[in-house]
Design a protein around this nucleic acid. Structure first.
Lengths: 172, 172
DNA sequence: CGCATGTACTTGCAAGCACAACGATTGCAC
DNA sequence: GTGCAATCGTTGTGCTTGCAAGTACATGCG
């Protein structure tokens, strides 16, 4: 859009948008990290909006359901709260409340470990699985859209390529 | 660490931690996106703690100072609030408050555009540049540590490689 | 058995964020 | 020039988060 406006003026009073400055940031020693952060933020924002609008789910709530649904498939090994927290990259307290929220909505169930009553596991309910199945296409489409849009940005392109590569290797 | 414990039991009562489940998540169609999200979260958390402890700066505050310092170097093109928001991947309102916070601490200054009085630009003060210079080593070290730790995880390794690659190309 | 140490989860609290509503400024049409 | 839509930034509000403190359970030692 507003790219390649050229040098709008080197004086101090420059008022029109100047994209070159943003480019300059990407020249520093943390170029890769900056790109990673940027890409993650954009994708998350895009997914967040899509899920929120269509299924009343936040990105993290979806992520939690997704993770827990995989554990459900295995039928065997369920995750404790601590592991869940690590998986969704959230503090323990935030994880507690996140699980509580979904439990209150009837999408999850807590159950205590029999041999170690400190440990708490979770199960995705039928309603949870249904909602997840319903939301998954939305999520995947939004993800694809975001990746597609990001690939247009030369600074993000290599990262996008790696992500797409990994996605591919997972789905086959 | 706790990897390869094997099948701890396919029965429902499995209590010991089961890492295999987390691995299973990484098999889905969003494997790459999941890895990206995970990596970004871990790095940010690590940097956040380091900056918070040593310089009373949040990761985003550092990021903002960093971005604006590059604009300062150019002397010419300064960013409007909207562009800043885009650069740090934050909502407009959050950006307003973030800038206000740093302005109150004397690290930034706002100044209005002369020709378009809707536009607002920012300058990093001397104090801001000093704090940034002081915090930069902390940030870079923390970033390196986090990347190093992440490279041990096979699922994150390819992504880490790409990031490091980009970092390298930026610092030379 | 009784107590100290350590682990797993939850709650009080302050801070930050996104969405929506708002006031201010500009540009265009008539 | 007056009216109207679009743009830019700030403020009100509710929700989520992280840190620190608290509670419950487990393990090891005397």
């Amino acid at each position: 859009m507003t790219v390649a406006t050229g040098d709008t003026g080197t004086d101090t009073g420059t008022c029109p948008p100047d994209v070159a400055v943003v480019d300059a940031v990407m020249t520093g020693p943390a170029k890769g990290w900056y790109a990673l952060s940027l890409l993650q933020g954009r994708i998350e924002t895009h997914i967040e909006r899509a899920l929120q609008a269509r299924h009343d789910l936040s990105a993290r709530e979806y992520s939690l359901l997704d993770v827990l649904s995989y554990q459900h498939d295995g039928e065997g090994g369920h995750l404790r709260m601590t592991q869940v927290a690590e998986a969704v990259v959230l503090s323990q307290s935030a994880t507690t409340r996140l699980v509580t929220r979904l439990e209150d909505r009837g999408l999850l169930e807590r159950y205590l470990c029999l041999t170690d009553r400190r440990g708490i596991y979770t199960n995705v309910t039928a309603a949870g699985l249904a909602l997840l199945a319903e939301a998954r296409p939305t999520h995947d489409v939004a993800l694809h859209e975001a990746l597609d849009a990001a690939s247009a940005d030369p600074r993000l392109a290599p990262l996008v390529a790696t992500v797409v590569e990994l996605n591919r290797s997972g789905s086959c």
